[in-house]
Structures are given as structure tokens and as C-alpha cells.
Design a binder for these strands. Structure first.
Lengths: 367, 367
DNA sequence: TTTATTAGGGCAAACGTTTGCATTAAAACG
DNA sequence: CGTTTTAATGCAAACGTTTGCCCTAATAAA
């Protein structure tokens, strides 16, 4: 019933040649006459020969597979990254295996183990929120597995990195909020150990200090689950609102968390931006349709995936191992909308629907 | 530098046993003494032995990999499906390879070819919008590749199917619109060849006819690119608005398309629902935050992926080939919000912010 | 004509497993 | 004590490729 695929041996038998001759003819050149090559190739074509990738992999120790490990596939940002990876991989004839860990350290370990067993040729990795240490990654890396880190990275592994300009993005949006007149800007962000958390926090603090504003510890809230745990997010916001001087603006540091905060404020009947301005890192496709339209810091997610995959493939196919690696920093885009409209009575909070075209290559713009 | 992983042969040599004994000891049982099993297992454990999956695959003709082929990863709905697939696969110790085709027939063919070369054990498939015929799929299926179809399916392949209750969902939302008093309901939907397009159209027409309303051809617009081609969508809406009797309500039949239509209406300054009510199939996480909050038909995307993967794995691991297959139809959920508020002057269009808790298991509710 | 060179192709090992069969030694049986 | 059974293990082929090396003619050089 199931027609077994044709193999090199079948071709060799049918044509009265040896395995090796057929193999070499198929690969072009070496020392096979044009006539024979022609013959073999035509026969293979006609009988729809496909090399058995498992056998090739076993022999060559190459699978032409890339592994991805990240926290959550349905996250807007990561979904776009994956799309970029798939696209680059397709162009270079690689296939992509995907795993997600739901911010769990244990799950990350298992996923990486699975991927490396299954002998992916290389790994695209964004750390989980719960990752305590990175010995498991270092082990793989030392054993020779090419790795490219993206988004949530670590310095402890000497390899390529592709990240967004998180510090710059946070700096720009915080400055924007300050210019708009907000004076009590809180920062809700993801798991404290993550590089993106630290970088965004740094940008936030830098912007405050640049304008001689104090940085208050109690205005900074970490959400270990990065927005996947609803009560956790609600608590963070509740605590902020319960402060003696509640914040008048919220900067959210993580894709899913941003929408979650929006939801919570909405549910609690808190007017945005009247009672609380809101801005956040988000790759949601249509922030201009929200009510109010949402000021976002947008990342070049697709491009991040594409670049990371290209760097990884380069790493895999390179003859001599690299010793010096690069860190690509992709610009973020500040898109100013109504959720951060000025708090002063003067300017109406309902004006200018939709996106103000506030996008500049590289850094964002504040007006 | 790169430490080569330890193999069965290494263990055999070190322990003075034969390959076969080690292999069998590792697999437990057969006819190896407990003592030997103990010895081998301990040694393997201690030296961190991992079977070479490529070799196993070559021998067993099983790779424990599932392939996914669908149109677009960043689509909310598909991203959730993928997440469900990954989750089920993880539980059964399978890995997942993913491809997207951007609604291109050619790309789908290539992706399927790649996946089957790479010898996935089975295929999870949602057709592309451009798929002209399915000979390429039938060929794979006849060659014995287990396939489970989901979302965008075809009858021409005799296998398991997992779909949403598209007809019912469209029927319910159309009925809802009619009850709310809308009389000119247009239907913007995806590529005409797709099963979901046909089923949703059917539900829409059934609902109109059930209430003795006419079905107008010119109220039905297909978007081949399913919302990925912005001008195409804009055109469809422009044509609807230019009609002698423009519609007073829009039912959108595809995830990305729904948001796109919302955008276009928004950009053109058309008031929702005053000038045009809007409802659509969408798995966007926070439709209650849009302005106005959006009436959606939501699908159980994660569950769809999970079920599809489980059915596929069952198919793969089953000894005797199945001859009779099942089609799982998952309920859709109608979530009524302000974008379909009654057009009559009586009831205010600004009341009741957020989601009306309008969800019933199985069919949705209209009030 | 003899020798060196080269083109074209075959042999067989190897990649790391799995598995049918053969082998051995010990135990059970008559 | 010889024979059969059983338990435990080894041998070797196989999965489909790739590749280093060898072999055979034919051609070129001397």
C-alpha cells in the first residue's frame, strides 16, 4: 500500500552502477562523466528520487534544522519573531522546530534538551522569565552547538545577540511622558532577571534622572509571569493605586503585560489618560483602535527573527569557528497616541483620533 | 574542543559487552539479566548517554516530529493553535516543525515537500488561501503520511478533521445583528475556495433566509489575501459603501480581516455602530478594549491545536491503519459588545462598556 | 614500445541504532 | 549421565548515505 520511496541503491541496481557512482553523480561532479551524470539525474528525476534526510543527517551530522526556544508563541511580539525566523530559514533551506516554556525554567531546560537531542544544527534562544542560571545553556554551547540569543539575552554566553534598543525605547517614552507633564510615572515590568527588564528599567531611570526627577522604588513593579498571570498583574496595579501618591502615568515593559494593564485599568473604571496615562512596549497590530488609542514602543520583531536566523545559519555553515561575535541592536519605534495625552486641562483628551505619525527611524520622536 | 557524545559502542567497549546487549539493556527487558541492565543503565546515566536520534530515526523510520503547515504564524488564531499543538506534542514527547505559506499555493507545495522530506511522522495542515487543487496533498497521503486537517479543510482527503462550528457561529452572529435591527448586513470574507469561507457564508445566508431576508450577491465580498493585502480590503469596503443601499452592518469572516476592516472604517471616519455595525471572527485577546468594543465570534484555537495534535499522534502510533475518521467540530463563542449595538435611536450606543457576558457553551447567545 | 598519467568508476567502511538468529552455559528433566 | 529447556548474550545485517581508496582502461609522454 505505502509505496516505499526510491533510494540510491534502487537507482544503482536499475542502472547497473555502484552506489557511490550514483551518489556522486547526483551531487554533480567529482569524477563522474557527463554522460553518466545525465543518465543518473534523469532517472532520479523521473522516478521522483528524494534523498533520505535521516541517512544524510546521520552521515553528515547535519540536519538543516533550527531550534527555537522562547516563552510564549501567541505573544504578538514572539509570533512575529518566529515568522521572521521561518522566513529566513526558508530562504536558506532550513526547517524550524519550535518550543515554548511559559516562563518556566524547568520547561526551558527540557525543551533545550529535546532540541539538542533531536540534533538541531543551531539554536535561537530567548530566555524564560524563570531562568535561574544558565549552566544548561553553557553546557550545550561548550559542546559545540551554535546559539544565537535574541530579545532576552545573557552576557554569560559568548555568541551573537540580537536585541531591541530597549534602553533607548524606554528612555524616549519616559521623556515623552515627562514632556507631556506627567510627574509620577510608574513602571510595571516583567521578570526581574531578564535583560529586557533591566535595560528598560535603566532607560526609564535615566530619563527621570536626566530631568532631575526622583526614582521611587515603590513605583517599580515586577511581574514574574510577564502578564500571563492575571492576579499578579492586578495586584501590581492595585498596589500602585493604593500608594499615598498614586502614579499619574504607567510605563509597561512587556508585550502581553501592556494589554493586560490596559484591561485592568479599564475594568476598574480608571480613565486613561485622565486618571492614568498608559504607554507600553507592544507589538499589537492596531493600537490606534483601542480606546483610547495606545501609545506604544514597537519593536522590529520580524526583522529580529530574520537577522537572528541569518546569523545563526552563518554560524552553522562557517568553516572556522568565530571567536568574536556581534550584538545587533535594532531600533524601537515610539508611536505616540491618546493614552498619553497631556493631563493639563488645556488640551482636550479626546482630540486627534488615531495614530499621530510619530515614528522616526532609529529612536522615536517626542513632541 | 567539541566533546563527541557517547554512543552505544563506547558503552559496549567500556563494559566488555556487545552492542546489542547494551542496546537491549537500555531499552529494558528483552532477555538481559537484571544485573547487566543495572550495570549498563548506571554507566549510561553516569556518562550522560543520549541516543542518537538520527540513527534511531534511520533505523525505525520514525522521527517523533510533527509538521505544521499553515498560512501565517502571527495571525492571532493560528498562533494560539500552534501553542496548542506544541503543548500536546510536548506531553507526548514529540517536537514540532513549523512552516507558513502566506496564502501562497506554490509556497504550500514547497513547504509540504520540505516537511515530508525531512520525514516528519505526520502533518497538521490548514490549507492556504491560494490552494488551487490538492493533488500534492493527496500524493503525500497516499504514500502513507498521516495527516490531520484543521480549520481550513477539504473533503477530498479521507482523514481526521478538526474545525470550528463556522456555520453555527456565522448563523448566530447574523441572527444577533438581525435581532438588533440591522437590515442590510454585508459579509466580507476570505478566499472563496476555503472551507471556512464557505461554511461561514452558509451560516450567514441561512440566518438571513430563516428570517425571510434576501441575500444580495453584492453584499458579499471575498478577499483573496484574507486581510494581508490592505488595498484589497480597502477596495472591498469602498465598493460596499458606494452601493446604492450601503450596508448598515458588516460581518467579517476571518481573523486578520476583522481587525483590518475595523481599521479601514476607523480611518474613513465611519462611526461604529452608528453608521455601520461591525462583528467578526476574531481571536484577538482584548476586543473589549477597542473603540467601540468589538462583537466577536471567538474560536477555541488552543484546543483546536491540542486536539488536532492528539489525533495525529494517535494516527501515527496506531498499529493498524484506521479506515474511518472523525470530524471534530468545536463550538464558537459569540461575544456581544458595542460594535453591534442597536441602530435605533431608543437605546444609546454608548452604554454598557466592555463585554456583555454573552457566552454560552456551544452556540453563543443573542439578547 | 614502455612507462607515467588521468579519467571514470567500484569497493567497502563508516555514521549509531535495532533486531533476527546463532551461540553458549547453566539449569531442569527423564 | 545424556538430553532438552531456558536464560543470557554475541554476531552480523540492515537502515540510506557519503567518501577514502583502489582498480582498470585509455591516453599522453618518453
Amino acid at each position: 500500500m505505502i509505496k516505499q520511496p526510491i533510494t540510491i541503491k534502487d537507482i544503482a541496481r536499475s542502472l547497473g552502477l555502484s552506489f557511490s557512482t550514483v551518489s556522486r553523480a547526483l551531487k554533480g561532479s567529482y569524477k563522474i562523466s557527463d554522460a553518466t551524470q545525465q543518465l543518473v539525474k534523469e532517472y532520479a528525476e523521473k522516478h521522483n528520487y528524494r534523498p533520505n534526510l535521516m541517512a544524510q543527517s546521520l552521515k553528515n551530522k547535519k540536519s538543516r534544522c533550527l531550534g527555537i526556544a522562547l516563552s510564549s508563541i501567541p505573544n504578538n511580539f514572539y509570533a512575529e519573531v518566529i515568522s521572521g525566523i521561518e522566513s529566513a530559514a526558508y530562504n536558506k533551506d532550513y526547517l524550524v522546530m519550535i518550543t515554548q516554556n511559559d516562563e518556566s525554567y524547568e520547561r526551558e531546560i527540557k525543551n533545550l534538551e529535546n532540541l539538542s537531542w533531536r540534533s538541531v544544527d543551531g539554536l535561537l534562544l530567548s530566555l524564560s522569565g524563570g531562568t535561574a542560571d544558565i549552566a544548561h545553556i553553557q553546557r550545550l554551547h561548550e559542546h559545540g552547538l551554535p546559539i544565537v540569543l535574541f530579545d532576552r539575552v545573557t552576557d554569560a554566553i559568548n555568541t551573537h545577540r540580537v536585541i531591541a534598543d530597549n534602553k533607548g525605547g524606554a528612555f524616549n517614552v519616559t521623556t515623552h511622558l515627562l514632556k507631556r507633564g506627567f510627574r509620577h510615572i510608574a513602571h510595571i515590568t516583567g521578570a526581574p532577571g531578564l535583560s529586557i527588564t533591566k535595560e528598560r528599567l535603566q532607560g526609564y531611570m535615566d530619563a527621570l534622572r536626566a530631568r532631575q526627577m526622583p526614582v521611587h522604588e515603590h513605583y517599580i513593579k515586577y511581574c514574574q509571569a510577564c502578564g500571563n498571570d492575571i492576579p499578579e498583574t492586578e495586584n501590581a496595579i492595585r498596589e500602585l493605586l493604593a500608594l499615598e501618591t498614586p502614579p499619574d502615568a504607567l510605563l509597561v515593559g512587556s508585550d502581553r503585560l501592556t494589554m493586560r494593564c490596559f484591561s485592568v485599568l479599564h475594568e476598574q473604571g480608571i480613565h486613561i489618560p485622565g486618571q492614568m496615562a498608559l504607554a507600553g512596549f507592544s507589538n499589537f497590530s492596531s493600537p490606534e483602535l483601542l480606546s483610547p488609542s495606545l501609545t506604544t514602543i514597537r519593536q522590529s520583531a520580524f526583522e529580529m527573527g530574520k537577522i537572528a536566523a541569518e546569523l545563526l545559519i552563518d554560524l552553522i555553515e562557517r568553516k572556522r569557528p568565530l571567536t568574536t561575535f556581534e550584538t545587533r541592536i535594532l531600533p524601537t519605534h515610539l508611536c505616540i497616541r491618546n493614552s498619553t495625552a497631556a493631563p493639563l486641562p488645556a488640551s482636550g483628551t479626546t482630540g486627534t483620533p488615531g495614530t499621530l505619525p510619530a515614528r522616526s527611524p532609529g529612536s522615536g520622536i517626542y513632541n
